[in-house]
Simulated assay, not measured.
Amino acid sequence: MSETIARAWAVTRHDGMVLGFTDHDRSLQFEGIEFRPDSGLSARAVVQGSGLSVDNTEAAGALSDSAITEIDLMAGRWDAADVRLWDVDWSNPENRRLIFRGHLGEVTRSGAAFRAELRGLSEPLNRTQGRVYHPRCSASLGDGQCKFDLTRPGYSAEGVIVAHEDGQRFTLSGIEGHDAAWFERGQLVVISGVANGLSGIVKRDLASAGTRREVELWSGLGVYPAIGDRVRLVAGCDKRGETCRMKFLNYLNFRGFPHLPPEDWLLTPKVNR
């Protein structure tokens, strides 16, 4: 049977798009997916460790307008996509064995080719567990621990891109009624155009004359939006207790320890009285 074994794998993005690939010279069909041979995509040998070791392998291929495009890769639309890999009998696809399941890790590209790291299901088990005792909040704004509702009036605003530089520094119109730096450490989310759905963390937020606003991200968007596209700004949090109490009125859910003594206190010699 080894003469009829091929490798087939399916990649499912978070937006629900599913693509199938195979190293066989003809298309294969199973589980409602067509596995195409013309994608230029291949996988290296799977490395699977015992215990809680991280399963790992790599996928390499050529950028294809009909499958994986350069724009989609740069936009991060393939980040953390679900991956399943089978050994399959191409003469009878019902005779197959699932040998890997995980998700895409880091994706790099060079010219017209790309390489993606595959990470196994056991990877999260190697993450550090437990709370960190720190004066600042350990929650993320709006998550299950913070419980703040970011849809509340005043904590987000929509505007239009008037100009931008390298998809990183934006001039926006239509956003008013917010103090300067209100959106720093928050998010800029593109909600229309070719970059729809992409987001970045706000580094600087400057209120200009009238309704114009200058916003700079920590890193540029993978796909440049067009002038006239709409964006949403979401308020940011610096995780201080004072900010939680005064800006968000959410101190009941503050997850930090603001009254912990500083490190210097531990090193200060105690004087007997």
Results as ranks from 00 to 15, higher is better:
214 E>F: 09
214 E>P: 00
214 E>G: 01
216 E>H: 07
217 L>E: 06
217 L>S: 06
217 L>F: 09
218 W>L: 12
218 W>A: 08
218 W>K: 11
218 W>P: 05
220 G>F: 02
222 G>P: 02
223 V>M: 06
225 P>E: 06
225 P>C: 08
225 P>K: 04
226 A>T: 06
227 I>R: 10
227 I>D: 01
228 G>S: 07
228 G>W: 06
228 G>Y: 10
229 D>G: 01
230 R>Y: 13
231 V>H: 13
231 V>D: 09
232 R>K: 15
232 R>N: 01
233 L>W: 05
233 L>E: 05
234 V>M: 08
234 V>R: 09
236 G>C: 15
237 C>K: 05
237 C>V: 13
237 C>F: 03
237 C>T: 11
237 C>S: 12
237 C>L: 09
238 D>I: 03
238 D>A: 11
238 D>P: 07
238 D>K: 12
239 K>V: 07
239 K>M: 09
239 K>T: 15
240 R>S: 15
240 R>D: 10
240 R>K: 15
241 G>Q: 15
241 G>T: 00
241 G>I: 03
242 E>I: 04
243 T>E: 14
243 T>V: 13
244 C>P: 05
245 R>S: 11
245 R>V: 00
246 M>I: 14
246 M>F: 15
247 K>E: 04
247 K>N: 05
247 K>H: 01
247 K>C: 10
248 F>H: 07
248 F>L: 08
249 L>P: 00
249 L>Q: 14
249 L>I: 11
249 L>F: 15
250 N>C: 01
251 Y>P: 00
252 L>V: 03
252 L>S: 10
253 N>F: 01
253 N>Y: 04
253 N>K: 05
254 F>G: 01
254 F>L: 03
254 F>Y: 14
254 F>M: 02
254 F>W: 04
255 R>G: 00
255 R>Q: 13
257 F>D: 02
257 F>T: 12
258 P>T: 02
259 H>V: 04
259 H>W: 06
261 P>L: 13
261 P>I: 10
263 E>Q: 09
263 E>K: 12
264 D>K: 11
264 D>Y: 01
264 D>E: 12
265 W>K: 11
265 W>D: 05
265 W>H: 08
266 L>R: 14
266 L>D: 08
266 L>S: 12
267 L>W: 13
267 L>A: 15
267 L>R: 13
268 T>I: 09
